[in-house]
Amino acid sequence: MEYQYPIDYHWSTDEIVDVIKFYETIETAYEKGIDRERLMLVYRRFKEIVPSKAEEKTLCSEFEEISGYSAYRVLKKAKDALAEEKIMMK
């Protein structure tokens, strides 16, 4: 995609890479679908970096604004799904 992911420049390089991986996982859920377990693993790492709900909401809103992909909707679907299910957004 041709946009910049919302990141915090106070994060370490590894943290930035992992947050970008989270955004890419959300994109994959819309474009091809992704295994629920893989999505939740990446999300758990994202939450280690961004433990604040307010900061998570801000970052995910910024991401949705620039990409059109809703992390909230993907995560809600994943939380409601069975463990082995593939998450595919329409």
Rank of each mutant, 00 (worst) to 15 (best):
E2I: 09
E2G: 15
Y3C: 07
Q4W: 07
D8E: 08
D8N: 12
Y9M: 11
H10V: 04
H10C: 09
H10A: 09
T13E: 13
T13D: 12
D14G: 06
D14R: 13
E15A: 04
V17K: 13
V17P: 01
D18M: 05
V19H: 03
V19P: 00
K21C: 12
K21M: 11
F22V: 07
Y23Q: 08
E24D: 10
I26W: 02
T28Y: 00
T28K: 06
A29H: 04
A29V: 05
A29R: 01
A29C: 11
Y30F: 12
E31M: 11
R36M: 07
R36L: 06
E37D: 12
R38K: 15
R38Q: 13
L39C: 07
M40Q: 13
L41I: 07
L41Q: 09
V42E: 06
Y43S: 07
Y43W: 11
Y43F: 15
R44W: 00
R44Q: 12
F46Q: 03
F46A: 08
F46M: 15
K47P: 05
K47T: 15
I49Q: 04
V50A: 03
P51T: 03
S52C: 10
S52M: 05
K53G: 11
A54P: 01
A54N: 07
E55N: 11
E55V: 14
E56G: 13
E56V: 08
C60K: 09
C60S: 09
E62A: 13
E62K: 14
F63A: 08
F63N: 02
F63W: 12
E64P: 01
E64G: 05
E65L: 05
I66S: 08
I66N: 10
G68N: 02
G68Q: 04
Y69I: 05
Y69M: 11
S70Q: 11
Y72N: 10
R73K: 15
R73S: 13
V74W: 03
V74D: 00
L75T: 03
A78L: 09
A78T: 09
K79Q: 12
D80M: 14
L82V: 11
A83I: 13
A83V: 15
E84L: 14
E84I: 12
E84T: 13
E84R: 13
E84H: 14
E84P: 10
E85F: 01
K86N: 13
I87C: 07
I87V: 14
M88R: 15
M88W: 04
M89I: 10
K90Y: 06
